[in-house]
Amino acid sequence: MHDAPSPTELVAAVKSFIDDAAAPQLTGHAAFHARVASNVLATLLRELEQRPAAEASEAERLRNLLDAPENADLAAMNRDLCARIRDGQFDAATPGLFKHLKTTTISQLAIDQPNYSGLKAALS
């Protein structure tokens, strides 16, 4: 299959159209939603760039935390992690847990809301 234009190029092209052509002609509610749409596409561009590596390192940490096999599914491991926290098997003092959650959340926010004040506080 072809990959030219790439997903990144396609999303970037739509974002340019919204920012440079469409948004300047809009007012009121539609202008607000155009701004939201542009921000969503910026999120998507960060996602395309950062998610593969972030998920790979998340999966590796989860395998260590849960003692899971090499081919374990990421969503299934996160469910397992949630269940263990919920039933008290894991808590904030569990070695590696807090660091894992913080690293994962920082990676998520770097995609979702990279300017959020709480992210800067977590990194400092």
């Binding site: 913080k102 959340t105 926010l109 709480g118 992210l119």
Partner: peptide, 27 residues
């Protein structure tokens, strides 16, 4: 179906980092 309602789902992680920052201080 608004884009705004979809987008707010990507603000949940803001509260997750706030929770972790608070937990870090508390424990």
């Amino acid at each position: 179906p608004s884009v705004e309602r979809a987008a707010i789902g990507r603000r949940v992680s803001e509260t997750e980092i706030d929770l972790l920052n608070l937990l870090e201080r508390a424990v």
